[in-house]
């Protein structure tokens, strides 16, 4: 055996060890990255599952006295978060009704005007809008809607604040989706004599439908847990409310209320679990849609 061969072996051992070391390092880092979400879900389930029963979805939030009595007797707190679920539904649906058409139209405008000055200003502003703190949007909605329009806290004001938060996400996803559609499809429509607006409505939007809906779902999952702007706009309500001009509750607002009442501690976990689960489901659905589109 020459010394060269021996050296070769040790060198190869060294490389193998290095390879193994980095392999496990990468796995460890990945585990650290995913562990917060797993820990959060674990904690929420452990603390929250007891409260999730039929009345959790069918009853409004209990008052302090009911909760205190139940706690004293070691029972599950009666009542649920129905007012929060209906409120969140009302606020988010209305925000979507406002933001989706406006966002898609602006996105189409940006797509149609690539490289033009005004369009790039609009794009920059939309990016900046994404960075505006949500509490500031709450203040704006307070000034725009609560004082002059509904003359008091209202679901509508909350929807306006959340719609502004949704806008930049929908604008961006619309533009990116449209960019991915080949121009040849647009030309195919035009070559049949179809007017331009109809080509957009009947050819481009259906073709990009999955991309658009992914963007919308992600935008909804972004805003559904927003609390700060709702505190300044919808305020909260102890009863189920379907009137958009009246104060309305929402799940994140309820979490905050439960947090401020020591008797309701258990409900914090169950409502957070519900909210978290809902956002997770939305995210998984939108990922599924995106994957299907790319196939």
């Amino acid at each position: 055996m020459s010394s060269a061969t021996i050296q070769y072996n040790t060198r190869s051992d060294y490389r193998k060890r290095k390879n193994r070391l980095f392999y496990w390092l990468v796995i460890a880092m990945s585990a650290i990255t995913v562990s917060p979400i797993l820990l959060i879900v674990y904690k929420l389930i452990i603390q929250g599952y007891k409260q999730i029963n039929w009345s959790f979805f069918t009853k409004v939030a209990p008052n302090t006295l009911e909760a205190m009595t139940a706690n004293a007797q070691g029972e599950v707190i009666p009542g649920g978060i129905l007012n929060g679920i209906t409120g969140t539904f009302l606020i988010v649906v209305m925000a979507a009704i406002i933001a989706i058409p406006v966002g898609i139209m602006i996105g189409l405008f940006l797509y149609e005007n690539q490289g033009k000055r005004f369009a790039s200003i609009v794009r920059d502003i939309s990016d900046i809008l994404q960075g505006v703190p949500s509490i500031v949007l709450g203040l704006i909605a307070y000034m725009w809607v609560v004082k002059p329009v509904t003359h008091g806290f209202s679901a509508l004001a909350g929807s306006v604040a959340l719609a502004i938060m949704m806008l930049p996400l929908i604008i961006r996803s619309t533009e990116e989706t449209m960019k991915m559609i080949p121009t040849s499809l647009k030309e195919a429509g035009l070559a049949l004599g179809v007017p331009y607006y109809k080509v957009i409505l009947r050819v481009l939007i259906p073709t990009g439908f999955s991309g658009l809906s992914t963007g919308i779902l992600l935008a909804i999952s972004r805003i559904i847990g927003e609390t700060a702007p709702l505190m300044l706009t919808t305020l909260g309500s102890s009863a189920v409310n379907w009137d958009v001009t009246k104060p309305t509750s929402a799940i994140p607002l309820l979490v905050w209320e439960f947090y401020n009442d020591p008797n309701m501690a258990n409900l914090i976990w169950s409502s957070s679990l519900f909210l978290m689960g809902f956002v997770l489901v939305l995210n998984i659905i939108s990922k599924r849609i995106a994957a299907k589109q790319n196939r």
């Binding site: 080949p182 040849s184 030309e187 035009l190 049949l192 004599g193 007017p195 259906p206 073709t207």
Partner: peptide, 22 residues
């Protein structure tokens, strides 16, 4: 002519097949 009438009379086929995917 209107573009609708013109393009009904003069059709066009492109380099890459472009059926409407939806």
């Amino acid at each position: 002519m209107s573009t609708i009438m013109l393009r009904r009379k003069i059709g066009m086929v492109f380099q890459r097949p472009n059926p409407f995917p939806t």
